[in-house]
Design a protein around this nucleic acid. Structure first.
Length: 745
DNA sequence: CTCGCGACTTAGGAACGCTGTC
DNA sequence: GACAGCGTTCCTAAGTCGCGAG
């Protein structure tokens, strides 16, 4: 926390408990001019609010000018209510064939229970955690080279070097910060394990050659890729069997899945964005580091041979089964239940019910912040603008961050340089949010918001300074509680996401094929994802994939044109009878057609060459006689024939009519088929492109009330499997079973 | 009464493995 | 029958926010 450091004391912010008075004050205020420079009234907050400007770096990196003390609100314990969604009118007939969830045991419908306990659990039984395998030293011919000389590393140091070598060619491996942090920790471990075994002293990262180690890991990867389906299955089964005891626990007497039962293996920390600590060694977790949480009186799982647990406790107020402290931030890691567990489901349901509750208050909140945009008290104005941003642009709260984390921001931590103002009321947001994902938006905002942002940026503030120098999430959240218990900044994201989804789904007409409905559902989903700024990086091959898909569509159109040419060849009079139908013939230029031919030829040749290589590979492996070059040439001759045919076709404009398509009826049918394929391919491509930078999953999993999707499926007769994967169906079982087609957010 | 810590949700990318297409 | 391309699952980092120790 930054403490008050300049001489001046700032205005006493009015405690919330006096909001009535605040209101009276505001009512005296007259409506302000909007356009042009801020009207005098806009600036009528106390003038002693001089902004402190000396960059004051304590723990915090960014200048916070003043922290205000606001009055406290009596906290209201959130009333827990288990929502009762009856409405299961036994009208779920088509679900019967869904037998994938092995329904051996009676399913526990926790959402039908009146559960109001504040304990996380009453009984809990589990087998502890699964440790990663111990380090396997590399074969003796695989070494790190230093100054071109092979280095004998003690296993502990070799392991760390290996972590880096594996990443050598990745973005992490090439990142200087990553390299520096890794190298520092590597030397540390090397020192701890007594230095190299062949007298080499390692001092300089640049003299280290990890390429041999890297090549070794690549080789392993290749081998793994080559495994046959059988071998894979075998390995999988072995793994599953080994995991079995750790996968499940007994919670309140019922078997439930555990989420991350595996202890995180040692590795180099891969921080996201410009992370100061990226590349540091994440050390191996020992049983002694682990705290188990388990029911009183239950058998304590055995720690691995020669080890013991750090601690065993019986805390029924928390959800975790085990935890340990990691060494990068000295923070905790927890082993908890899977997403499909009753505990997680309950929290989820509660979250959405809380968001729905906000519906009842949102009008008042909006009215109040609109009014407070003109408050005379700086804190109030900042609050109003911040809430506006959270409400309208779905920003996160934005808590303070320390120096040793990536520089990312949310609403309260926005800085001068993140917001650009373009009169009359356009704002450009440009900052890195959670996970260093860029938030870039040019938007028009409320005029008063615009004016206020200008005030918040006014000199002497400059880049590096906090926009909301008096705000922190806790202030906002405390204020939110006055509207509704449990209301916090993040509830707005849930509320706005689900409400948006509801609105979008309402606009979908109940018509068309399942595929069409799905497309529209995804479009709605996408609107939400965009609202929440859920992005993904386009995959490496994306541009190429799009190009290829476009080619495919072009080729389908070309095929259709050819068929139409056949029609005309057989019945020239058709051109006059239905000129529209043959319009597209003239849209294809000779150059385009030649290009299409060339592509097809190339692809065909490629195909045969690859086939040849593949079969010979196989034969070689079987030590059988290899195919002769002659075979390949025969295949290629086929392609050559095709090429000739194309060339002739291009020259004469005549298509050779195949017996397959020798009647009008046959051709018509084929044209119809092609037309269909062209349509679906085009739609799919468009959808894919629009999705290439948007991640739909995050909002589906965390923000959109699943009951919306369930209701949509029931109302529109879309199988739920089309929308929820198996894992999601398990996670949202409560929603699938409780929401009917009329359910509304 | 504060604030640092503890516990929880939310997040994107890597790894995995299935499937539709030729 | 191979295999690219894709969706799904796994992994763990990075947020939010309440609460209790001092």
């Amino acid at each position: 926390m930054t403490t008050s450091h300049s001489g001046s004391d700032y205005d006493e912010d009015i405690p919330l408990s006096q909001s009535v008075k605040r209101k009276a004050e505001r009512e005296r205020e007259t409506a302000q001019e909007i356009e042009g420079s801020p009207a005098p009234g806009d600036e009528e907050y106390n003038s002693d609010e001089v902004l402190a400007l000396q960059p004051k770096k304590k723990k915090k990196k960014w200048i916070k000018v003043k922290r205000s003390k606001s009055g406290k609100i009596t906290k209201v314990k959130s009333t827990k209510k288990v929502k009762k969604e009856e409405g299961d009118e036994a009208d779920v007939p088509k679900k019967e064939e869904e037998n994938e969830e092995e329904g051996e045991e009676e399913k526990y419908k926790w959402w039908e229970d009146q559960n109001s306990s504040d304990q996380a659990w009453t009984t809990l039984k589990h087998n502890g955690v699964m440790f990663p395998p111990p380090y396997q030293p590399l074969p003796s011919h695989v070494k790190l080279y230093y100054d071109n000389k092979p280095v004998e590393l003690p296993p502990d140091a070799e392991e760390v070097a290996g972590f880096y070598a594996a990443l050598l060619e990745t973005d992490h491996g090439k990142n200087p910060v990553f390299q520096k942090n890794f190298f520092h920790d590597f030397l540390q471990v090397l020192k701890e394990s007594g230095g190299t075994l062949n007298g080499i002293t390692i001092e300089s990262f640049d003299k280290c050659d990890f390429s041999k180690m890297h090549a070794h890991f690549e080789l392993l990867k290749e081998e793994k890729k080559k495994l046959s389906t059988q071998e894979r299955k075998q390995l999988r089964e072995e793994r599953l069997k080994e995991e079995e005891p750790f996968r499940y626990c007994e919670l309140n007497g019922r078997k439930e899945q555990i989420g991350n039962f595996r202890v995180e293996p040692p590795d180099l920390f891969r921080g996201r964005g410009k992370h100061p600590k990226t590349g540091k060694l994440k050390r191996r977790v020992q049983p002694e580091d682990i705290v188990l949480n388990i029911g009183e009186g239950e058998p304590i799982p055995k720690a691995p041979e020669g080890h013991h647990w750090g601690e065993v406790k019986h805390d029924t107020s928390v959800q975790w089964l085990a935890m340990w402290r990691e060494n990068i931030f000295n923070s905790y890691k927890y082993v908890r239940l899977a997403a499909n567990s009753s505990i997680k489901g309950q929290s989820d349901l509660k979250k959405f019910e809380k968001a729905r509750e906000l519906k009842k208050h949102i009008a008042a909140i909006r009215k109040d912040y609109t009014r407070d945009l003109k408050s005379k008290v700086m804190l109030e104005r900042q609050k109003a603008v911040a809430i506006y941003l959270i409400d309208v642009f779905a920003l996160r709260a934005g808590g303070e961050k320390s120096e040793d984390e990536a520089d990312t921001v949310g609403c309260c931590s926005l800085r001068y340089e993140h917001v650009t103002l373009q009169p009359p009321n356009t704002v450009i947001f440009d900052f890195l949010g959670k996970d260093s994902i860029r938030f870039y938006q040019e938007v028009e905002v409320d005029h008063q918001v615009f004016k206020n942002l200008a005030i918040f940026k006014r000199s002497p503030k400059q880049p590096g300074h906090q926009l909301f120098d008096r705000l922190e999430p806790s202030i906002l959240n405390r204020y939110f509680q006055s509207y509704m218990p449990g209301l916090t900044a993040k509830v707005f994201r849930t509320y706005n996401a689900s409400q948006t989804m509801q609105d979008q789904l309402d606009m979908i007409p109940n018509e068309g094929t399942v595929a069409e409905k799905l497309l529209r559902y995804n479009a709605a989903n996408r609107t939400v994802a965009i609202l929440c700024n859920h992005q993904r990086t386009v995959t490496k091959g994306h541009a190429q994939a799009v190009e290829r898909a476009n080619y495919r569509i072009q080729e389908l159109i070309w095929q259709r044109i050819r068929l139409k040419r056949c029609l005309l060849q057989m019945h020239p009079e058709m051109a006059k009878e239905d000129p529209e139908r043959f319009e597209e013939l003239s849209t294809l230029t000779k150059e385009d057609e030649a290009a299409i031919h060339a592509r097809i030829i190339e692809r065909e040749e490629d195909k045969y060459r690859r086939k040849f290589a593949r079969e010979n590979d196989k034969l070689k492996f079987e030590e059988a006689e290899l195919l002769e070059e002659k075979v390949l040439n025969e295949w290629l001759q086929k392609v050559e024939d095709l090429k000739q045919e194309f060339a002739k076709e291009l020259e004469t404009g005549e298509v050779e009519i195949k017996t397959k398509f020798d009647s009008v009826a046959k051709i018509d049918k084929q044209i119809e088929r092609l037309t269909e394929r062209i349509a679906t391919s085009s739609v799919q491509l468009k959808d894919r492109e629009e999705n290439s930078e948007v991640s739909l999953g995050t909002s589906k999993i965390n923000y959109i009330d699943p009951r919306l999707s369930v209701a949509f499926c029931k109302r529109f007769d879309v199988p739920i499997e089309k929308i929820f994967t198996k894992a999601l169906r398990q996670k949202f079982d409560w929603a699938i079973e409780s929401a009917d087609e009329d359910w509304r957010f």
